[in-house]
């Protein structure tokens, strides 16, 4: 693995809210990296620091200490404008409640990050259509979010997260509002984007969904307490047909 394969690196990242005796430590010295083609699940109880980790990794909040490095850029050294540009070009967020703009069509929602980055809407529609194709929603491009099912809305959100070659997907409980089968379809889409060369963090409290990841990190009280990786030998399933 080369340095350029590492999309995200957290080095000794700590995050404290408040000061003095009332200070709350949300993250305490977290080291984590995500490479191209890798999906890392972050698990932990409520209040363990999962969502804080995602907002810090996505440059939405600067950490109290430590460094966040996205595609080789040290976020602490970027101006607000540079940080906003990096976020638009490199990072895609997927939230539990989809966060689509109701007055825009699926295609317009997916085009939006590119248009905010200065693309004309005509030019932005082309990669947006490609992204909708990836999540198998080409035929829903002109639909408004209210005309789409929850699973379809989340697939639009994934298309928005990867449009224009953005490579790092940060997903916060993306299946939380979906039924079991629809959730699985959304994870399958997420997984296939990562297999195609993106990288991702999947925050979830659901073990079955975390199992889609290559690595699973457990957070407790803001610290990584354990990491799981699948074993290389599948002894368990030797009898099952492939």
């Amino acid at each position: 693995m080369t340095a350029s394969d590492v999309l995200l690196q957290l080095d000794g990242v700590s995050m404290q809210y408040g000061h003095g005796e009332t200070a709350i430590t949300a993250l305490a010295g977290v080291d984590l990296s995500v490479s191209r083609g890798e999906l890392v699940a972050v698990m932990g109880a409520s209040g363990s620091g999962k969502s804080t980790l995602l907002t810090v990794a996505g440059g939405l909040t600067p950490p109290t200490s430590g460094e966040v490095i996205v595609e080789g850029h040290w976020l602490s050294q970027l101006s607000a404008r540079e940080l906003a540009t990096l976020r638009r070009r490199s990072l895609g967020f997927v939230f539990q409640d989809f966060n689509l703009i109701p007055s825009l069509t699926a295609l317009e929602n997916v085009s939006l990050p590119l248009e905010l980055d200065g693309w004309s809407s005509k030019k932005a529609h082309h990669p947006a259509r490609d992204a909708l194709g990836i999540v198998e929603l080409t035929d829903r491009a002109q639909h408004f979010p209210s005309d789409l099912s929850g699973g379809q809305q989340q697939r639009v959100a994934i298309a928005r997260a990867v449009v224009g070659g953005r490579s790092l997907i940060l997903a916060d409980e993306p299946t939380g509002a979906l039924d079991s089968m629809t959730g699985e379809l959304v994870l399958r889409m997420l997984r296939s984007r990562v297999d195609a060369g993106a990288g991702g963090i999947l925050v979830t409290h659901d073990a079955r969904h975390a199992a889609w990841a290559d690595r699973i990190v457990f957070l407790r009280d803001g610290r990584i307490v354990d990491e799981s990786q699948p074993s290389t030998v599948s002894s368990l399933l030797s009898g099952l047909p492939a």
Partner: peptide, 22 residues
Amino acid sequence: IQVQRSATMRTLQELTRTKNAT
């Protein structure tokens, strides 16, 4: 508990991978 959870999650990952490969 932690050791067990890691093992359980590895099992879950293997099962999920096998299912997804189908």
